[in-house]
């Protein structure tokens, strides 16, 4: 790690100096600082800055940015009304990491692209303009949707995938006050500026995530990975599906492991909505989802795997 100054702060405030970084759980930031992918000049420790409660909010819930993943997944209200969120969090990392990782930090988790994490390789996200060694390299973990020729990294987390399907909102505090960002719009696609993972500005800080009123229907989170636990997703699917009279009345689907952001596709949901579930329908939905999917060799399999994962989730969620 490069040297840095450390200061504990009492309030959750945006940083105001370049080189400052907020640290809470530190599970991702310290990992990257050890690799010198991140090298802040000053760490502002917000781990005791409050914002660690889950409270009722407009018929839904407001999860403070510093609520740990463990606490969030263990919360009775989350478990009862948003089981998808609890399941997604519990599918991620390990209990030890979830005890440290926070809601705000987890939203900002950086990619697991091995080239991003290795300072001796070329990476446009880590070092803009240097090139992308993943395009022709080992890219089994990489994105198939919404990629660009400068970056094929994925957003690696689970929690945000669930939040996307749940239509959650990120509450952000900046110099000019609070703004609300739908989770689905929080992460961005790499385009020609892959250095930015999300739309959070340098002078903004996440203060909370809010969940709308609980939606009717079944909620599920399916994560496919190389080992049964403690591994990142190859593909994951978050689903909220309501069946009425043998038809899919409402469906929200978000995918992890496929893109630089949790992937939500309105067209896929539109195909499913109002129709009786069947393997053929699931296939049609997958066709729409994956119409523009592009493999880069090592990750070609994700196209077929995403189709199969979707079929599995839809089958399970629509079983009588």
């Amino acid at each position: 790690m490069r040297p840095f100054d450390y200061r504990r702060v009492a309030d959750l405030q945006p940083v105001d100096q370049p080189g400052d970084r907020l640290i809470a759980g530190g599970t991702n930031l310290l990992d990257l600082m050890k690799l010198e992918v991140e090298a802040p000049r000053r760490l502002l420790d917000i781990s005791r800055a409050g914002h660690d409660r889950i409270t009722a909010h407009e018929g839904g819930l407001r999860i403070g940015a510093l609520v740990t993943n463990a606490d969030c997944a263990a919360d009775p209200r989350i478990r009862a009304d948003y089981p998808l969120l609890a399941k997604a969090i519990l599918a991620g990392a390990s209990p030890q990491l979830r005890n440290k990782a926070t809601t705000g930090g987890n939203l900002c988790q950086r990619t697991r692209c091995q080239y991003f994490m290795a300072t001796d390789t070329r990476c446009n996200k880590r070092q803009p303009g240097s090139g992308c060694d993943a395009l022709q390299g080992v890219n089994r973990n990489h994105a198939i949707l919404g990629t660009s020729e400068t970056c094929i990294a994925t957003y690696p987390g689970d929690m945000a995938v669930a939040l996307t399907a749940l239509d959650a909102t990120v509450e952000v505090l900046g110099q000019d006050g609070t703004r609300l960002i739908p989770v689905a719009e929080f992460h961005r696609l790499p385009g020609d500026d892959p250095a930015r993972d999300n739309v959070l500005r340098d002078d903004e800080v996440i203060t909370a995530v809010t969940l709308p009123e609980p939606a009717a229907g079944r909620q599920s989170y399916r994560k496919i990975r190389d080992r049964s636990s403690y591994a990142f997703a190859l593909v994951s699917v978050a689903a909220v599906i309501e069946l009425r009279e043998g038809r899919i009345a409402r469906v929200a689907l978000a995918f992890g492991g496929l893109a630089h952001k949790p992937w939500r596709d309105p067209q896929t949901e539109a195909i499913l909505t109002g129709r009786p579930p069947s393997p053929a329908l699931f296939d049609q939905a997958a066709d729409a989802l994956l119409a523009k999917a592009k493999g880069r060799g090592g990750n070609d399999f994700k196209i077929a795997l995403a189709r199969r994962a979707l079929a599995a989730v839809l089958t399970e969620a629509t079983e009588e």
Partner: peptide, 11 residues
């Protein structure tokens, strides 16, 4: 799973 899934019979 990447090697197996593509060869599996129709679920």
């Amino acid at each position: 799973p990447d090697k197996l899934a593509k060869r599996l019979p129709d679920p």
